[in-house]
Write a protein that binds this DNA or RNA. Structure first.
Lengths: 148, 148
DNA sequence: ATAAATCTTCAAGTCGGCTTGAGGTCAAGG
DNA sequence: CCTTGACCTCAAGCCGACTTGAAGATTTAT
């Protein structure tokens, strides 16, 4: 007895690609809201799909769930703050630059004729700049760039 | 009674910028090796500084400690495998591209005149491609691009 | 009517990379 | 000789974002 613009958790899960456990967790964290219950079962509005896509995007861009939560107004519409967005963009630019330097260094080392890479001056530079950045930025990188 | 090319943990900590607890942890994980003890106290060879820089670099590039451990031969010299390095470089290239797309999208949204960003077609595209990537790659991104 | 499927809650577990804290040991300085 | 302080060990805790599992409720299909 569900309206055609309402979804149960299984449908949301299928449409969004997220497991039901994640959806419950997100609701607990107030990132999404179910519109009611049918018996015990949550009913979500169709709009939750867009919200979830936005959440994916935010996560992907490096926002924490707390940050994302703050981007939704109490009524559930997105309220993306321009300054905040540009700040995030800047952070991404930094990260991109560093990763680029890193990648170029790695490629160089892979092709470097020196038998012991530690002796390659360019490698040393790379190592040192990475170390310096770690110190300066106290960057907490738990990044894993591998998929598998 | 320490030779001039040997360091205690406090000196290593100061030179590397890493807390002593991290150094002990790295030794436990067999990433570094102390060369002996003076009483209870660990003595490290000077070369540990280079190794730690290399470890920083590796972490920064997204290697896990396990991966890094495998990059050191039993004698402690780095043995960087060319194929492995190039693979890492490829991963970085992917990450860089995605982050770049993300940043450009964010900047666009920040400047987009539409009042409700969800209505911006470009934003929708961005959101969708992010969602698609998450599904396809099952990328486990615990990345946090923020410092603080 | 009853069994199977699907949902519910809540607590606890997982992962990686450390940090923290309690309690113990040891070398040097006063 | 004795205190101080730098070091030690080992176990436990922390973080974020979920996942897992047990036990119960409800709906749906037979």
């Amino acid at each position: 007895m569900k309206a055609q613009n309402e979804l149960d958790i299984a449908q949301v899960s299928k449409l969004s690609g997220m497991p039901a456990s994640t959806l419950r967790y997100y609701e607990e964290r107030a990132l999404i809201k179910s519109i009611g219950r049918e018996g015990l079962k949550r009913i979500f509005p169709l709009s939750v799909i867009d919200q979830l896509a936005l959440i994916s995007l935010g996560r992907y861009a490096g926002f924490s769930l707390d940050e994302i939560a703050m981007m939704f107004s109490p009524n559930g519409r997105a309220k993306l703050d321009r300054a905040q967005l540009l700040e995030k963009a800047d952070e991404l630019t930094n990260t991109i630059q560093q990763l680029t330097a890193m990648r170029d260094g790695i490629v160089h080392v892979a092709n470097c004729p020196k038998t012991n890479q530690l002796d390659c001056p360019r490698f040393q530079t790379l190592v040192k700049s990475a170390a310096r950045k770690q110190l300066m930025e106290k960057r907490v990188r738990k990044t894993s760039h591998h998929q598998k």
